[in-house]
């Protein structure tokens, strides 16, 4: 991914991510998050993770976020009232966030000084075939466990919602 592409994707990502947490309306937040997800899918395409890119769209943008939107609309949520918020918590959170981002940026930029060149990509990197092969050999047990987790989550969600 060249620098131009990077910034073309990174800038909207950060902007829409900021909208997610700043917009008072939950629907706009959710829609911004959909946009973030879609841009991330694009980002994944450029990082040679084709399969993951599509999954990002289908799973995150297409399913999870629809679920969020569904709940928002079911509860008919209006704009977030801001009055009762503890001021000390807000201040502390802002300071904490600033420190965290400073630390992360410092950490990552420092690690870049000892950066090696990107490795050569093997044949079929990020394709369905390569991903599936790994998934059903090296990662078979985690895969099965994840499937059970999904089943449990489905049952749990039904039980909770039916109560």
């Amino acid at each position: 991914m060249d620098l131009l592409t990077f910034f073309m994707l990174a800038v909207p990502l950060v902007l829409f991510a900021a909208v997610v947490i700043l917009h008072p309306s939950p629907v706009y937040s959710a829609m911004s998050l959909v946009v973030v997800m879609s841009f991330l899918a694009l980002y994944f395409f450029f990082l040679d993770a084709h399969m993951l890119g599509w999954f990002q769209i289908i799973v995150y943008a297409g399913s999870i976020m629809v679920l969020f939107l569904f709940v928002i609309m079911l509860l008919n949520l209006q704009n977030d009232p801001q009055e009762h918020q503890q001021p000390s918590l807000r201040t502390a959170s802002r300071i904490g966030g600033a420190v965290l981002i400073a630390e992360l940026v410092f950490l990552f930029s420092r690690s870049s000084s000892s950066e090696k060149a990107a490795a050569e990509l093997p044949e079929g990197f990020g394709t369905v075939v390569a991903l599936s092969e790994k998934l059903f050999t090296d990662f078979l047990i985690p895969f099965e466990i994840t499937s059970i987790l999904l089943l449990i989550a489905a049952v749990g969600a039904v039980v909770l919602a039916k109560r």
Partner: peptide, 17 residues
């Protein structure tokens, strides 16, 4: 080519958000 640290910093920013 965007160096790996760019990706990581972007990730950090999104995470902090």
């Amino acid at each position: 080519m965007a160096p790996i640290s760019y990706h990581l910093i972007l990730s950090g920013i999104l995470f902090t958000i």
